[in-house]
């Protein structure tokens, strides 16, 4: 490691000349450090920025600070009420030890297509705020582990519109805890008088970024959730994703599982 900086004020970021790797809970960064990666990096510890930690109602939005841990998100009454799929996803991240330290900002910045919070943020239509701008979550990721973040641009908060949607998250991994998703899915539905007025579906780990299934959403809109509708929607969704074979799973298995977990999510609603 080349250099270690600790910042206690957001404004101090602007004065840093060298390109930094930001450090929050360390659950991704220290895995890389332990592996011998980041040997030449300048680490910038942002954990003293306490204003970035916490969940608040902010006008028509819920604000989740970038330094909020998954343990806090999973038990937040506000998140459970307005963004249930995010609470469920937070509960599935890593292990108790990881959830106590891992932050949502880090999960987003890491940009993995299998990041568990990301499909939830897609269906909730979250806005990613940095110290420079706001970016819609769907525009934020440009490829596996690649995002629009520029040099020393820091995610500060995530804004989630406060709506009365029913939402849910589910993932398939090799085991229940400490398993990176083979495939994950989130769905958010607006249901009025039994009819779906808006549907948003997204999958993780089945493409270079998290994928929103627009056609599946359109298909569901205006319909009632019957067995046939759910089966058809799951089939459409399986056609919208583009999974690959890799160390964790095969494309075929991922496609089949994607349909299965969407069916399970929709049946529960």
């Amino acid at each position: 490691m080349k250099k270690f900086i600790k910042v206690s004020r957001l404004a101090a970021l602007g004065r840093i000349k060298e390109e930094c790797v930001f450090l929050a809970g360390g659950t991704d960064i220290y895995v890389a450090l332990n592996d011998g990666a980041l040997a030449c990096a300048t680490l910038c510890d942002i954990s003293p920025l306490k204003t970035l930690d916490g969940i608040k109602l902010k006008g028509k939005n819920i604000s989740v600070g970038a330094l909020t841990t998954f343990a806090s998100i999973a038990k937040s009454a506000v998140i459970k009420k307005y963004a249930a799929c995010l609470a469920e996803a937070a509960q599935e991240v890593g292990s108790p030890q990881i959830r106590n330290r891992a932050t949502i900002g880090g999960n987003v910045a890491n940009g993995s297509p299998s990041g568990d919070s990301i499909p939830a943020l897609y269906v909730l239509k979250a806005l990613i705020k940095t110290n420079r701008r706001s970016v819609a979550v769907e525009q934020f990721f440009t490829g596996p582990k690649r995002t629009v973040l520029k040099k020393n641009e820091l995610i500060t908060e995530i804004l989630i519109p406060r709506k009365k949607t029913v939402s849910s998250f589910m993932k398939i991994g090799a085991r229940k805890a400490l398993a990176i998703s083979k495939v994950s899915a989130a769905a958010a539905l607006d249901i009025r008088g039994g009819i779906i007025t808006e549907a948003s579906i997204a999958f993780g780990a089945v493409g270079p970024t998290v994928i929103r299934c627009g056609k599946t959403g359109e298909f569901l809109t205006g319909k009632k959730l019957s067995g046939n509708v759910i089966a058809k929607a799951s089939q459409i969704a399986a056609g919208e994703i583009c999974p690959i074979d890799d160390c964790r799973s095969s494309a075929k298995y991922r496609r089949e599982c994607a349909a299965v977990i969407l069916t399970r999510i929709l049946r529960n609603n």
Partner: peptide, 13 residues
């Protein structure tokens, strides 16, 4: 009061 992995915990924190 919370369980953490000390292999991933920055000593400086």
């Amino acid at each position: 009061g919370e369980l953490v992995n000390s292999c991933l915990f920055p000593a400086s924190q």
